[in-house]
Design a protein around this nucleic acid. Structure first.
Length: 443
DNA sequence: TCCGACATTAAGGAATGCTG
DNA sequence: CAGCATTCCTTAATGTCGGA
């Protein structure tokens, strides 16, 4: 769609012989126009009419009489030459500036107590421009003499110096972590350690990949690698079979997500997930999704499917039984347990207490001041809050309330509590009544 | 609910590399 | 050195989210 409109637009433009079409303000367009609307690399020099392929850059070279890729334009004036030359130089200097900036950043890096700093600065340029031979050099620094001396020195380095240097590297690392908002635990990951070691082995002048490299080629490589590393698991599937586990949940944006994981003796793998907000989670829907995945893995490998006990899942289970009678449809034990707790919780005797506890905790957490007050009295400990789906937490809440019984009672009878204006509201009073009532605590 | 600051994605274009 | 392919970068469009 977009392609057709843009090409028709460029048609119109080239008819007008205008360079406007290219939103780029590149000066080259003053001297060239598209020779062929469909081929952006094929350009015609406005001065001598020469056809040049290879894009606007070569037009500039053509005008500026820069040899190597195109024949020089015979009709360009000195002014034109200068203009294009400037444009090229400018772009080049811009690039240079960028790399110089980068180099400067590198230069700034001084690892304290690094007495061969001077020496390495001298050689820094060398690895910067890798020659053709570097390709064949061993992954470890090829310059053995330099490398050897450095290694020796590191071994002989005295403790204090070593510490100092480590510290100064730490600082650079920490700054990066803070600036970029890297989660702290990232530092513990093995891949990070490998990375650090790799940089160390590379020596000075390592250039990190660009954003582009990171998100396109490198990512693709990594995906392939991961896939191949899962080969082992797939073999295990073939050998001993596997189970599929599924669950649906809502993320923080209230999007509904369905997950499928595969479990086998080798471990658990995430298989796929699906955003299913706009689909009703009917049994058929779930069944189709799971069935598709079974098809992918190979029906002969799948032993069972594990789900929670929601009725739609049970419906899906029935469908599955019809289509694939040899696959077990198992409901999750935890969920069964959860349902049991829920059943207990619904009995009138517990229900009242739970309701009271709920309204009390909700009140506390609804206002930040009451919350702060509560934390003060309970010494920073929170009350476990009831989740809607996980019924066990209702009981955990009760337990945690019991633990803090005395603190809570002290809190609501304190002056600080009474000074709060919420305390006089209806909800506040209800909360107080709950905590003070013996029937609540005694169940 | 509207705005502004960012983040993410997609597409276009420049630069460069390779080959005959 | 022309022609084509590939890589890289920039820009424009679009999406997201917190705060007024």
């Amino acid at each position: 769609m977009a392609g057709t409109t843009s090409s028709s637009a460029s048609n119109a433009m080239s008819e007008m012989g205008s360079s406007l079409k290219h939103g780029s303000g590149d000066i080259g367009w003053e001297y060239a126009e598209l020779a062929d609307a469909s081929n952006l690399d094929r350009l015609k020099c406005k001065l001598c009419g020469k056809l040049v392929s290879g894009g606007i850059y070569r037009i500039k070279q053509h005008i500026a009489h820069i040899k190597g890729n195109v024949a020089a334009c015979k009709k360009s004036s000195d002014e034109d030459k200068a203009k294009c030359k400037n444009a090229i130089e400018e772009a080049k200097s811009k690039k240079k500036q960028k790399s110089r900036h980068e180099a400067e950043i590198r230069q700034e890096v001084i690892v304290e107590g690094d007495e061969d700093n001077e020496a390495s600065q001298g050689t820094r340029r060398m690895p910067h421009t890798l020659g053709p031979m570097d390709r064949f050099a061993s992954p470890i620094d090829p310059d053995s003499s330099l490398d050897g001396s450095r290694k020796m020195r590191q071994q002989n380095i005295n403790d204090a110096l070593f510490k100092q240097r480590t510290h100064s590297v730490h600082q650079y690392l920490a700054r990066w972590v803070y600036e970029a908002g890297i989660p702290f635990h990232a530092i513990d990951s093995d891949s990070f350690k490998r990375f650090v070691e790799a940089v160390g082995q590379f020596g000075p002048g390592y250039r990190p990949p660009s954003q582009y490299q990171l998100r396109e080629p490198l990512l693709k490589e990594e995906v392939d690698r991961t896939k191949s590393s899962l080969k082992k698991q797939e073999e295990e599937w073939d050998l001993n079979g596997c189970s599929i586990m599924t669950d649906a949940w809502s993320d923080r944006k209230r999007r509904s997500i369905m997950n499928l994981c595969i479990n086998c003796a080798e471990g658990t793998t995430f298989l796929s997930s699906k955003e299913a907000s706009d689909e009703a989670h009917t049994g058929t829907y779930i069944f189709e999704y799971v069935d598709k995945c079974i098809e992918e893995i190979g029906p002969q490998n799948v032993v069972q499917v594990v789900t929670d006990n929601a009725s739609n899942n049970m419906a899906a289970g029935n469908l599955m039984k019809l289509k694939r009678p040899n696959i077990f449809w198992t409901s999750c034990a935890t969920h069964t347990f959860n349902l049991m707790l829920q059943g207990i919780g619904n009995q009138p005797r517990f229900k009242g207490v739970i309701e009271k506890a709920k309204s009390f905790t909700i009140y506390i957490y609804a206002h930040h001041k009451t919350l702060a007050l509560m934390r003060k009295f309970t010494k920073k400990r929170d009350i476990v809050r009831p989740g809607v789906t996980r019924f066990a937490t209702a009981f955990l809440t009760l337990q945690s309330l019991m633990e803090k019984k005395n603190e809570l009672r002290a809190m609501i009878t304190s002056d600080e509590w009474n000074a709060r204006k919420h305390a006089k509201s209806v909800k506040g009073k209800t909360a107080v009544n709950i905590v003070l009532s013996a029937s609540f605590w005694n169940g």
